[in-house]
């Protein structure tokens, strides 16, 4: 068993050394692809975590109609509470809102006897900020809600961050596909070149009756190795990049960077790189069967 493994690995090493230039180019291209994919993924995850933390601070105000009865207001509260994504609601009656307002703005109301113009007001918090838009739409359609400006959404920053996350997702996907394709083509070509360069050995293997595994496994190991080495390089670049960003933003009090998940990133990228290298080399073998056929 060990003897067999040793033979297969030694064959893979010979393959890797046969086209050093192309192997190096494949590893660099794979690393670049995985830096882009990994970098965007980490940024996305970081922002998603940040937004989740902000969720409890995010509020929405809902104003009841002027003519809504106390029972209708209570029913409105219950209906809002039931909506998916809503964490909690709290009600301030007309009188409470008016009292607060007068307290905050004494210069305006002092000495005047005015009718209370304030509506019954709900303050809504969320468990999931992604559901804010749907909750707003549903609440606006409720009959007890004031028809004009009945819902007031706070948190422009959160909206902006969500837009940023969507952009990151699409940009990461687009750039990732382009770079993964480039790296994949390089791995494919490297394995194909190896097949051509090792035509004589492969032919001998076929003539003497070597099985499919013996012929193909070294070529697959070559592709997997390129993918994994690219992943290691990508992890190093991301780790260094994270360190630089952390230093740049450490003076800004609002922003706090998370520690770099080194082990997690390394394992994930290594697995992705291995799978990526395997697929590319498998395609190279599958698409070029003539290179393996004895003549």
């Amino acid at each position: 068993m060990f003897d067999r493994l040793e033979f297969l690995l030694s064959e893979a090493v010979i393959s890797l050394r046969r086209n050093k230039g192309m192997t190096f180019a494949s590893i660099i291209a794979s690393a670049l692809a995985l830096v882009i994919v990994g970098g965007f993924t980490l940024t996305y995850i970081g922002l998603a975590k940040y937004l989740a933390l902000q969720g409890s601070k995010f509020e929405m105000s809902v104003f009841a109609r002027d003519d809504a009865s106390p029972d209708q207001v209570q029913a409105l509260g219950k209906n809002i509470e039931k909506l998916p994504g809503v964490k909690s609601i709290s009600l301030k009656t007309k009188a409470e809102v008016w009292a607060d307002w007068k307290k905050k703005n004494p210069a305006i109301t002092n000495g005047l006897e005015l009718d209370n113009p304030m509506p019954d007001t709900f303050t809504v918090t969320f468990t999931d900020l992604k559901k804010v838009d749907s909750v707003v739409a549903l609440v606006k359609s409720m009959p007890e809600v004031a028809p004009k400006d009945g819902v007031q959404v706070m948190g422009e920053v959160q909206n902006f961050l969500q837009e940023v996350m969507i952009s990151i997702r699409w940009l990461g996907l687009a750039l990732g596909i382009v770079t993964l394709a480039t790296g994949g083509i390089l791995i494919y070509n490297t394995v194909h070149l190896t097949m051509i360069a090792r035509r004589r050995e492969l032919r001998i293997m076929e003539l003497v009756g070597a099985n499919k595994m013996t012929v193909q496994v070294p070529l697959l190991i070559e592709g997997i190795t390129q993918g994994v080495l690219g992943a290691l390089m990508a992890t190093l670049v991301l780790w260094l990049g994270h360190g630089v960003v952390a230093r740049v933003v450490e003076g800004i009090p609002v922003i706090r960077t998370q520690p770099f998940p080194l082990v997690g990133t390394l394992i994930c990228l290594a697995l992705v790189g291995a799978l990526y290298g395997f697929i590319c080399s498998y395609l190279a073998i599958r698409e070029n069967p003539k290179e393996l056929a004895p003549r």
Binding site: E201, I204, M205, A210, N211, T214
Partner: peptide, 26 residues
């Protein structure tokens, strides 16, 4: 199978050429 062009590996010695084929078949 004995091919017309011998099909020997130039970077391997005689015994290695035979040994390589043996290793390839397990």
């Amino acid at each position: 199978i004995v091919p017309q062009d011998f099909g020997l590996l130039p970077n391997k010695k005689v015994w290695e050429n035979v040994g390589y084929a043996m290793r390839a078949v397990g």
